[in-house]
Amino acid sequence: MQTLLKSTPFRYALNASAIIGLYAVIMLLIKTGILNRYQALMLIPIGFNIILAASLNLTAGFLGQLPLGHAGFMSVGGYAAALFSMSAALPTNVELPLALAIGGVVAAAFGLVIGLPALRLKGDYLAIITLGFGEIIRVIILNLKFTGGAYGLKGIGRQTTVTWVYICVVITLFIISTLMRSRHGRAILSIREDEIAAEASGIPTTYYKVLAFTVSAGFAGVAGGLYAHYLSIMDPSSFGFMRSAEILVIVVLGGLGSIFGSVVSAIALTILPEALRGFADYRMVIYSVLLVGVMIFKPSGLCGRYEFSLGDSIDGLCSRIRGIFSRKGGVSDGGDS
């Protein structure tokens, strides 16, 4: 039993069925009307916020370098995806994934071009220079013809569905978590821990910094594409510094270096302002007080660096149950978990 629980194929099967199962539950809740139309629509912003937070966590949490221009990459990806789908006339199920892929690639290219010079800096200076780049992207979009200038883009097909968001979230989380458990991910972590020691251990630190930055920007671009095809408009003023700050807040609140924390916190912080709608004017005040409160009382974020693993959780649960039974039988079993 225990060896089965630890075996790789079993873990894969378990995770795959959990992913499909969760999707089925969500769909069922929508079909049966337990989640009303409005609540079902909330799932989409939850989804792209998860992608944004998880991707920012790659640089802020795992690489240990804080970028403050994530919204810039999101907008680049969004505009690229929207411009593609507005000019192409393909069936939705072909057009949207293509648009998202284009959004991701274009944003990743921006990430590469900006990352190469910016990542020579560290810490606060890196934060500031990415903030600068983010603002410049916004101003340039505001002044270009083909992006619609200050008016932005209108009439983008509303193609983002719960299913597409779900697929994108699963792909993002899968790629980021498998990446982090490989030699490439460990190289990224070693830079956060000690850049000089990493370099002395044979890690090409510049390469991995730029890589993490580029991948992070790429996923932000995908999220931007989902955003564009959800709202059906792109307004350059909604990608300013405050948007970057919002994403950062999700990441830090969830826990820097915890993908699971980013997911939990993206869900909580997307729902919270809506749930507080009853308090009308007070909601944003309550939101900011909660934020400051959590940071003061739990500075490492809600989940610290904890990572959830379905297999491990079931494993732990099983040995706990076995522990209870063996204690009843009067035989101590050592209780490894």
Binding site: L179, S182, R183, H184, R186, A187, L189, S190, E193, D194, I196, A197, A198, A200, S201, G202, I203, L211, R305
Partner: peptide, 24 residues
């Protein structure tokens, strides 16, 4: 200068980075 918050195993695995060659 260890990678303090990573496991002992990961500290060694990081140094083995270049002995592995699988791609991204």
């Amino acid at each position: 200068r260890l990678f303090k918050s990573l496991s002992v195993m990961d500290n060694v695995m990081i140094a083995l980075h270049n002995s592995m060659s699988y791609s991204l």
